[in-house]
Amino acid sequence: MRWTGWTVAYVLGLVALVFAGAWVWWQQEPEARGTEVNALWARHQWVGEPHSDAEYRELAERLRHNRITDVYFHTGPFEADGTVPPHKYRYARQLIDAVRKYAPGVRAQAYLGQIRVVDGDGVIELDDPKVRAQVLRTDAAFLDLGFDGIHYDFEPIYPDDAAFITLMRQTRELTRSRGRLLSVALEQATLMDTVQPVYKTLLPRGGRYHEPPRPNRDFLRAVADLADQVAIMTYDTALPTGALAGWHFARHTRTTLELIGDRTTVFIGVPTYRPLMHWAEDLDVALRGVRRGIDDLERPPKRPYGVGVYADWTTGPDEWALYRAVWLPRTAVSGAGT
């Protein structure tokens, strides 16, 4: 019993040190500001439902005012065979025309994805060449409509997913032949690749608990070499304090930009929602953490980088005001309208 008591006390002491160290680290005010290149995930209703001219104008003003350069308009999801029924995006053409008219320079991308089949569970089987071929035909249809790019969000994606890499390579050929963009949303990368064999041994794939679908460094580099943009879904931390959640965003920002920031445009995903289960995570914490991560870089990346706001349907005026105040370059904020 005595040894049990000492063990518990030791563990609690270590936890207290971690919390205290994170709190001290978190007190330093970030110096870095954001950039003029930022993304936004947007709801399906923009392509699936009619909107008035005033609503399109309001959307365009919001994009310009907040320096959003890329919008991932949800146009899917894919059906199991790789199609998307046309009635689901019947108003896409009107949206594209409105963005071009009222927000020239903003790139409207078709946001497409689905639950990836893994060990028999899921919806879309990317290992099937016929399904991948249909996905490409669907992509081409969206490009024909006028979208500026294809944005993939297949989940889960594991770092040994050769079929996904094949699809990325094929899609890159398509988008580049049209002069368009290929972007992709990925889970945050593993910070320590050496522990992944432990996950594979202790938590094998299949069932409710399995190896986390985190890209390792080699996989992230391979994807970055194929994509024009990589958006990292850094949110959903489920950490109990702002300091720990902020450290999470800072660490992933620095690691990702160091790893692929010279290869492709990177957007670090930040949330504008705050479910109770995610404890301390919110937009303020996320942006402060991203800025701390940028501060820690030895040099800025060669390619553009920014944040990806998730999502337009959870972002109200207060969140946008905070985003402008703490993220946008000061010259952009001072020059912005109301």
Rank of each mutant, 00 (worst) to 15 (best):
L239K: 14
V118D: 08
Y102K: 11
W327C: 13
I260R: 02
A141Q: 15
R291H: 10
Y273F: 08
D70H: 15
F164D: 04
H151K: 12
V118Y: 10
T83Y: 10
N66Y: 07
V71N: 08
A140Q: 15
A20N: 02
L287N: 00
W247F: 06
R43N: 09
Q188F: 11
T234K: 14
T175A: 11
G82H: 08
L203Q: 10
A286R: 04
V71A: 07
V99W: 02
V47L: 08
D295E: 02
D148M: 01
R172K: 12
A163T: 00
V18S: 09
V71F: 05
P104Y: 04
A336C: 08
W41K: 00
L167I: 03
F19Q: 14
A42H: 03
L202A: 04
I294A: 00
E173N: 03
K130N: 05
P30K: 06
T255C: 03
V99M: 06
G146K: 07
R288W: 00
R100D: 13
T171L: 00
R116L: 07
P300M: 12
G82W: 12
P129N: 06
Y152N: 05
R324H: 10
W247V: 02
R33Q: 13
L226V: 09
R64E: 04
V290I: 01
L297D: 10
A60K: 00
A60M: 10
P301G: 04
A9N: 09
R221G: 05
P212S: 11
L202G: 02
A321I: 02
L63V: 14
V15A: 13
A108Q: 08
G105P: 09
P159I: 14
L14K: 11
D128C: 06
M233A: 09
H51S: 07
D127L: 07
L276V: 11
E58D: 14
R205Y: 06
V118F: 05
A92L: 09
R254S: 13
F78W: 10
L143C: 02
T138W: 13
V223S: 03
V71G: 01
L259H: 09
L276W: 09
H278K: 11
A162F: 07
S177V: 04
T69L: 11
V135W: 07
V266M: 15
F219W: 14
R169A: 04
D282I: 09
Y310E: 03
V290W: 03
D318I: 14
G120Y: 10
R180V: 00
I232G: 00
L59R: 02
A325W: 09
G335A: 12
V195D: 10
G306V: 12
Q188H: 13
G34Q: 03
Q109V: 11
F267I: 01
A280N: 03
R57Y: 09
V47C: 01
V230L: 01
V184K: 04
H65L: 15
E36Q: 06
L244I: 07
V106G: 04
F267W: 07
V99Q: 01
R180Q: 13
K88R: 15
P30V: 04
R263Y: 01
K200G: 03
R274K: 12
Q188Y: 12
V37N: 06
D119V: 08
H51Y: 10
I150Q: 07
A16N: 10
Y310M: 08
R33E: 13
K130H: 11
W26E: 03
A245S: 14
D70K: 05
E29T: 15
H248W: 15
